[in-house]
Write a protein that binds this DNA or RNA. Structure first.
Length: 548
DNA sequence: AGTCAATCTCAA
DNA sequence: CATGTTGAGATTGACT
């Protein structure tokens, strides 16, 4: 496939240069005045794979001009993946840094996020002239291609990561349909009308007053202050070591139910109240900034807006446009299925070849009513590193029935405890332990044992969570390609193992089919001919809240 | 007035 | 002896 290297210049211009697959230039560098228009034209002519420093910086400009591209190679994201694989976590990933590493020169720190090309140039003063930049892009890309070719799975991983960056930019551009009216109505219903200034909403103030009263009314107890709450309980002869909801639930005091209600509503008000609405919703759309590869395991993060923690009650505010619908799809029990496929455990894969995985495994836990629940606890413990109380017995059942799956996560935990790196199926690599960790573990004290176990839990979970993220990313890339061929439908939300597509009603069935096809394709690309199924639960709804 | 850790709850 | 993963984000309260 043809590739085209891109370097952004100041003032909307730039330089492009065609490349062969291995990164060798196949034509001259061409300086253009309007980079966005140039990319649009070349995309229409032949849809090359665009090789550029950062999708997150360039794609918003392209999308604003109505230019969509099919494929790219994001040099910064790929650099991060390659550095991570080499155990060099967190080193600078800019093209300038990669170029410096290539030449054995001092490596510059990455610029702060948000800086524009021209701002960076003036900040660092000594940047090379524009004509030089394209040569850096070409050289860094060629080196990355050499690195990718040596690593099994990396070609798919880097392509999917880059496609993910395009999805992220497009989702921010499209926005999640969000009804400010319904959001406001929900808040008013639960909290009372919107207060002026920084006052507490009526309902919260009532609850706060009742809490003070319940503690005897002598002076105010600020329910927002854990310290004051703890003191108040101590004065009432009911000392608590924390003010968490699940701790308070076991305390018998009239303030408790009021406090729990206050906490829940207060959380809604502070995290997703009117000021959130003012800040994040405009023109009927919620537009968070997604950070691809922002989590060590390859899951995405977001910058502002708390998009990955939208409370369930607020999903009522996510409403399709008239004549449109939301296709909500989530991968059922993704992580245990990933473990089954990853470990190649025959007995486990057999169980995972059916609908409900936990029910399928329940047989291993005997003939009891709560066998499914036990199977679930055992699986989650195996993946999260639990093992207290009841989970001990459950884990031993798992070990005898599904030895390969058990051994897979155990061996990841042992590798972690030895300070080794572990990787996802496609090669995404966990960060190495810190210097502080190594010091701790030398000490040989209780704190050392604690640090070892903690690292083991991390690596045990990493192999599963990161491979699940691999799978989800490949699914996303596949789904994006299928939706692009359909026209209007757009991806508007992605959260670890769940996607939302906004589509014209008449295309809903087609979108549902595309989701299932994409899931199958992802399973095949990662695991080949595995028997494990990766079912997607889909719902076609007017509002996100109706999905489940 | 700004920074930072601790605490808490939300999501998968 | 105790052993549950990854995050975002708001607030308090201590510190500079």
């Amino acid at each position: 496939m043809v590739r085209v290297a891109v370097s952004e210049g100041a003032g909307g211009g730039g330089v492009v240069r065609p490349l062969a697959e291995d990164g060798t230039p196949s034509g001259p560098a061409v300086e253009v005045d309007d980079l966005v228009a140039e990319i649009g034209e070349r995309e229409r002519d032949g849809a090359p794979r665009w090789v550029w420093p950062s999708t997150a910086r360039l794609a918003p400009r392209l999308l604003a001009a109505g230019v969509r591209v099919a494929r790219c190679h994001d040099l910064e994201l790929v650099e991060s993946l390659l550095l991570g694989h080499a155990g060099r976590y967190g080193e600078p990933r800019s093209v300038a840094a990669a170029w410096a590493r290539l030449r054995g020169e001092p490596v510059p720190d990455d610029p702060l996020p948000g800086a524009t090309v021209s701002a960076q140039a003036s900040l660092f003063g000594d940047e090379a002239p524009v004509g030089d930049d394209i040569e850096r892009v070409v050289a860094v890309h060629a080196e990355q291609q050499r690195g990718i070719a040596k690593l099994h799975g990396f070609a798919l991983l880097t392509a999917a990561e880059s496609a993910g960056a395009l999805v992220a930019a497009e989702m921010t551009h499209a926005g999640l349909p969000w009804s400010a009216e319904r959001h406001d109505a929900l808040l008013t219903e639960m909290l009372g009308p919107r207060p002026s200034g920084g006052l507490r909403p009526r309902r919260l103030q009532e609850l706060a007053d009742r809490i003070s009263d319940a503690f005897g009314g002598r002076g105010h107890v600020n329910p927002d202050s854990p310290a004051q709450i703890q003191k108040a309980f101590a004065s009432a002869g009911l000392p608590v070591n924390s003010t968490r909801a699940h701790v308070l639930k076991s305390v018998d005091h009239p303030a408790v139910p009021v406090l729990l209600e206050y906490k829940e509503l207060s959380r809604l008000h502070t995290a997703h109240g009117w000021s959130w609405l003012d800040t994040w919703v405009a023109d009927g759309r919620f537009r968070p900034e997604y950070v691809v590869g922002g989590v060590v395991s390859g899951r995405w993060a977001t910058n502002g807006g708390g998009a990955l923690q939208i409370p369930r009650v607020l999903r009522k505010a996510v409403v399709a446009d008239p004549g449109w619908t939301l296709v909500v799809a989530d991968a059922a029990q993704l992580e245990p299925r990933v473990l089954a496929a990853l470990a190649g455990d025959r007995a486990f894969a057999e169980a995972a070849a059916h609908g409900d995985l936990y029910s399928a495994l329940a047989g291993a836990f005997g003939d009891r009513d709560d066998a499914r629940e036990k199977a679930k606890i055992a699986l989650l413990s195996a993946m999260y590193g639990g093992g207290t109380g009841e989970a001990v017995q459950l884990l031993s059942v798992l070990r005898t029935r599904f030895p390969d799956a058990f051994e897979y996560v155990e061996s990841a935990a042992r590798a972690g405890e030895r300070g080794h790196l572990v990787r996802s199926l496609l090669g995404r690599t966990c960060p190495p332990p810190s210097a502080g960790w190594r010091e701790l573990t030398i000490a040989g004290e209780e704190t050392a044992a604690q640090a070892l176990r903690s690292r083991g839990r991390f690596t045990r979970n990493f192999v599963v969570q990161a491979t699940a993220a691999d799978w989800a990313l490949v699914l996303l890339a596949s789904l994006r390609r299928r939706l692009a061929a359909m026209g209007p439908p757009e991806l508007v939300f992605f959260q670890h193992d769940e996607v939302v597509v906004h589509a014209p009603c008449e295309q809903a069935d087609e979108v549902v089919a595309a989701v299932h096809d994409a899931a199958r394709e992802a399973a095949r690309l990662l695991f080949g001919a595995t028997r494990v199924l990766f079912p997607m639960e889909t719902a076609v709804v007017d509002t996100y809240a109706d999905a489940k």
